[in-house]
Design a protein around this nucleic acid. Sequence first.
RNA 1: GCCCGCAUCGUCUAGCGGUUAGGACACCACUCUUUCAAGGUGGUAACCGGGGUUCGACUCCCCGUGCGGGUACCA
Length: 495
Amino acid sequence: MSSAPSDLLPESVELPGTRRLRFAPSPTGDLHIGNVRTALLSYCLAGEDGRFLVRIEDTDRERYQPEAVPRYLETLAWLGLRWDEGPDIGGPCEPYVESERLPYFQAAAERLVAAGAAYFCFCTKERLDELRAAQRTAGLPTRYDGHCRNLPPAEAVGRRERGEPSVVRLLVPPGETRWDDLVLGPQLVDNLSVDDQVLLKSDGFPTYHLAQVVDDHLMGITEVVRAVEWLPSTPKHLITYAALGWRPPRFAHVALVLGPDHSKLSKRHGAQTVTEFRELGYLPEALVNFLAFLGWSPGTEEEIFTLAELRQRMTFERLQSSPAILDQQRLDYLNGVWIRKLTVEQLAQRIKPFLPQATPEQLVPITAMVQERIRRLDQVPGLLTFAFSEPTPDADFLRGKLSREVARAFLEQVPALLDGDPDQLMDRLRSLAQELGVGDPTTEKKVLQSVMRVLRVATTGAEVTPPLPESIALIGKEAAVRRIQRAVRVLSEAG
RNA sequence: GCCCGCAUCGUCUAGCGGUUAGGACACCACUCUUUCAAGGUGGUAACCGGGGUUCGACUCCCCGUGCGGGUACCA
């Protein structure tokens, strides 16, 4: 057999980075929060002296969505996960798109076949289906029966030349496979339970199993961080590395992220893609901080971390092996923390897309008003409806617990108080309220509250708003007076 | 069915043979306060079950149970 194809496989040369970790998403749809978590872990675990690379795993032609690639990259960038090598910026191991690396996979497959570590298989889908069904009813493990394992090479070549569709399967040797997982510890698998995996599909594309092994080797990947769903196929990968004479990377299998009902995260759990979380008004800083703690902890009681700090601190030793449930309340809390950590100007920029009706001049004052009271950016419009539309509270809503007379008497005198120093407005309102509170059986404090409530409802139409002086300043004195006068009218007419 | 992994408050977690089992979210009080938040103080709440090993198990081993994953020419 010719050795030419194998020459297509370059031996890895010196590559930059003490550690090289990659994120290799399959471009189908939108980036799932679970995927992003492994990307985050890989980015952090690469450390400050390591390299983080992105490789596009587009070997499934059925599910491939070309538009997904730029979207994925944009999402990673939004989160701040900067890659050192990737499809857009290139690097020493170009190209970083698997569909452009077919010769490598085909060469590897041929090398494996030549070495007797893999073989051509001509079994049809129908035969395989029947086989599995029969095995299952017999209570046996469902796996390939080795039907094509011992085809004479000449026959295999002949059938291929005649155009019969074929795949290349890994020939799993007897024995056992062991490795020391960076998260789960020592693993031992009897090769009897490892299937003869298809490495090269009949369309000439590799399966994940081959592509991952070949590319991780050629790209000098030192550690592979992936979800436990890959655990059962690790022996296949290790056997492939060994057959190719390559040293495998170390593996770190992290547990899955589950929904609140302990099942795999899916649509019915609400937001699950990064884009969805972004549209709900979560900050990348919060998402990163939150995700990092799903399966990792610093071992101290610190819990607020920037991405840079995470990259500095994260180690494989502290990775957790049990699954984590996505708790959105905790995410909300962390998001609130990060919202308050930003400067008003920074936050204003983040709020901007959520409040397109705000003028540039309004944006900063608005931000200052809401910064302490929101946990998500999408809550901003709800807090500020009064600023962008005229409220129309009715008399009963206006007066609340107060009598119409007291409510009206109070409101009638407010416009005059609006003129002085805005910082003292509360003091002036307080004095006015105290005057009106004389003779009232309730405490002064309660009177003050009721009376402020009337003014709040009159000017904003809501019981819950940012502080009154700022709210009034936002809508402007003129509008405030107009709204108060309207309220007075409503209260009078109701009588 | 078969193979594999996991198991501390409701949730995220600390713990790595001897602790009053710690922190955070959520929740409940109180506090601050013009509402709502934010902040402060305090509180409720956990080692899945059964066997071992050991002077001593949340911690180590085995079994069970529960949950999760794999079982594709998808990743």
